[in-house]
Structure formats: structure tokens, C-alpha cells
Design a protein around this nucleic acid. Structure first.
Length: 132
RNA sequence: AGAGCAAAUCGUUCUAUCGCGUUAUGCUUGCAUAAUGAGGAAAGUCCGGCCAGCAAAGAGCAUCUAACCCGGGGAAACGCGGGGUGUAGCAAUGCAACAGCUAGUGCCACAGAAAAUAAACCGCCAGGCCUUUGGCUUGGUAAGGGUGAAAAGGUGAGGUAAGAGCUCACCAGUUAUGACAGUAAUGUUGUAAGCUAGGUAAACCUUUAGAGCUGAAAGAUCAAAUAAACCAAGGAUUGAGGGUUGCUCGCCCAAUCUUGGAGGGUAGAUCGAAAGAGGGUAAAAGUAAUUUUAUUCCCAGAUAAAUGAUAGAAAUCCAAUGAAAAUUGGAUAACAGAAGCCGGCUUAUAGAUUUGUUAUUUUA
């Protein structure tokens, strides 16, 4: 097990303004079943990355299943996020990230974890290139 | 024994590691330790409340809700016990659209002559005319045919040109009105009227009873910067409007502009917001809903919204093998996630257990 694989409240993306700004001007790519929207923060807050998770009601009807998917995504991010944080730290930036679930069926934890790894690697290389 | 019906209960448990929310404590002030963290429906938002706001918080209408009877319970909604009527079922038992189409209006597809101030397509009967085994036409006729979910009481007799509640007998129903039984709903029964009237109120509506309206995104407080609204002063303009719960009345206020004052509450923060018509246990009263007394507990509190992931056991279920013990493999379920709280209702629900009860089959 890894040390310090945490995902506390402060690292969640909460502000409605930030989320609105992210969807307006952020970059994005797809990694089915997930869609990633990300951008550099406009002002630094001391937190390397704020991450939000969204499961649209349109695709997943029952609240129970939406909760289940959110928890699986958060768990996968929590376990695998330390390399990305290192990358961000080296590039000297801070990020806002939004993960949107686009599938209409419930994926297993293993499927989600693999995709999360792919996404985090891609973000990491983006940071190494200088966030452009 | 398998099946049905009713009521009630459960609807995985434990351990380890890594995490998340809340609370408490500690200090190094963002970390450590400890405690705690979804349901019987948390759901639908259909009722009733608590709570809060709306202040000229008054009236009427509209709207919404309820709708067999008695008893008893509850804050109310609405349960509970017993009974009646209708209906489904062999039964246990379930269900209720159990006030009113004889207040009014509307609707009744297709088919059919006609779907409602009763109707004539075929048929039947009578009259008239003609080119007379027939045809045309005028009228009568609801017995027969065909259509339809539904065709205007049924059977028989009389009656008639043919027919018809046209008349009569019996049966069925309706309305009116008695008698008896019952607290009552209602039941049994008598008399009168040929009265025979289609269905639909889960169509509008009518009757009776109740509700002021809004809804925690309520509402209260707070920081920085604006605006709307508020108060005061001023001048000019407009001329009966504006506000008040869906409407009407009633009630309240003139409106617009400038300056000043005081203040202001957004996608932010705190409160509201978790000790209550509370839960558990025991005893007592009651068939029960429920009530009383004693004792004990504090039992989620988020806000882009915590309760998860992985591993291992147990237990249960399923499948295969086997005479059995057992072995191997698989699954952890169904419906479903708190969002102010409480009491109901309704809907969804794999599987398991207990109790009572019903008919059937087999055995004794």
C-alpha cells in the first residue's frame, strides 16, 4: 500500500464559479467511460489539484448507482494520484480537474481504475511539457 | 405433505489494511488519537401537523381534501375492533371507483334503421294506385330478424287489421308509504301506483363536512463592493393608477425624477438543524389501535453533498459429483441512498423465518 494516498475535502472542486470557468475555458479529452476537463488555476491556493466528479442524472437514473460510481472514481483517484501531484509540483502550477462519467452502464472498479491511470499519466506528461 | 390466505420479523455477520463526513480531546494549527456514521420503504411528495414567513391575516367565490354504520384511539391526518351492502374466490380471506345520473349539462368509437324530448332497414297489417303469383305509395305496428358492450322489464293468457303493460296472472325492479328486528348502516315483510325510468359522476357537476395563503431554496444574522427597495427634503411632470393569496369585493398607498441619509444580503459564511406528539426494556389496562407508570439511551447531520476500496473467514443459497458424510465451483443479492423534523398513506421489494387459518390429497 502507498503512503499518503489521501483525498480530503480541501482537494475537492466545490465552487460553482470555478466549475463554470472550467467548462467555459478548460481543455478536455475523452477516455471512455470518462471525460476529463482541466485547466490551470487563475490564482494559487496552496492546493496542487482540485478534483470534481460528476455523474449525470441523464445517463444513470438511480441515485444509488450514481453514488456508487462517484465513490469508485474518487477511490481510484485517491489511490493513484501521487505521481500526478509530483508532476504538478515540478511544473510549478496548480490545476482544476473535472471528471465526468459518460457511460450509460455501471462499470466495475477495475475498469475505472485502469482508465484513471491512463488519464493521470496523460495529465502528467502534459505538465512535463509545460502545460501547453 | 405440498398449495393458498392473513399477521409479524429479518432482509448478511466478523476481522485486517488504506480512505471519507461529523463530534470530542491534544498539541506542533493541520495533523494525531478516540467515538460515531442510511432505510423499511431513506422513494413518490399524496395527506396531516410542528416550525417559519406573509399584517388592514377581513368577507365571498374558486380551488383542494374527505364520503356505509356503531364503538373506541389519536394533535390531526388516519389507524383499530365489530357490523352491514356489493364484488372476486370452493374456502380462509381480499377489494370498494360503498352520497347523488329521478337537479342540470355533456359523452356513448365501430357496427347498426335507430344510442335517447323513444326509434320503422327488413318483416307484419290496413288503405290507395298500376303494366296484378308482382311492384309503387300512404299510414299503423316494437311480436320476429340482423348490428352492438348496451336496443327500452320477463313468461303465459286475453286482446287486435297486425301489434303493443293495451289489459290480466305470476315473477323481477322502481317510487311512495307503513309494520317488525336492530343503537345504526341495513334486513325481513305489507300496501299503493302499470310507474318499467339505458349506461357513464375514475365526465363536468350537485350535496354534506373541513381547510387563510406560501414552504426550510421558509426564515434570522454577518464581511468587502454595487444595485433594487426604505426614510427625509426639493422641484417638475402625469392624471387614476399602483399594491394586497387564483378571482371579486373590501382594505392600504398617489406615481415618476434629483440630492442626502440610513441601510442592503447574491451560487459566500453562521444559525435554522438534530432531546423529539423520541427510541429501547419491563410492568399494568385493552381483543386491538393505543394509553399509563418505572427505568434507561442520546441514536447520521452532509451542502458539487461523508458512509467506500481491497483481502480473508463464517453463515446462507445455487450447481456438479456422490448411497451418505463430504468435496469442488459460483453468488452475497431484491427494491433502493438521509437533506428541517414528526405521524400517516401509496408504490417497489430476490430470498428467509415464525404464528394463525382454509380447502385439497395421502396415511392412520
Amino acid at each position: 500500500m502507498q503512503f499518503n494516498n489521501r483525498f480530503p475535502k480541501q482537494e475537492k472542486l466545490k465552487s460553482v464559479k470555478d466549475i463554470g470557468f472550467l467548462f467555459e475555458s478548460g481543455k478536455s479529452f475523452n477516455a471512455f467511460p470518462l471525460r476529463v476537463v482541466y485547466a490551470k488555476k487563475t490564482t494559487k491556493t496552496g492546493i496542487l489539484a482540485n478534483v470534481g466528479v460528476s455523474v449525470p442524472k441523464k445517463n444513470i437514473k438511480l441515485a444509488v448507482n450514481r453514488n456508487l460510481i462517484k465513490r469508485r472514481i474518487k477511490e481510484a483517484y485517491r489511490i493513484n494520484n501521487h505521481e500526478l501531484k509530483n508532476g504538478i509540483k515540478n511544473a510549478d502550477v496548480e490545476l482544476n480537474i473535472m471528471l465526468v462519467y459518460t457511460a450509460k452502464e455501471i462499470c466495475t472498479y477495475n475498469q475505472i481504475e485502469e482508465k484513471i491511470k491512463v488519464i493521470l499519466n496523460r495529465l502528467n506528461t502534459w505538465c512535463e511539457k509545460g502545460c501547453e
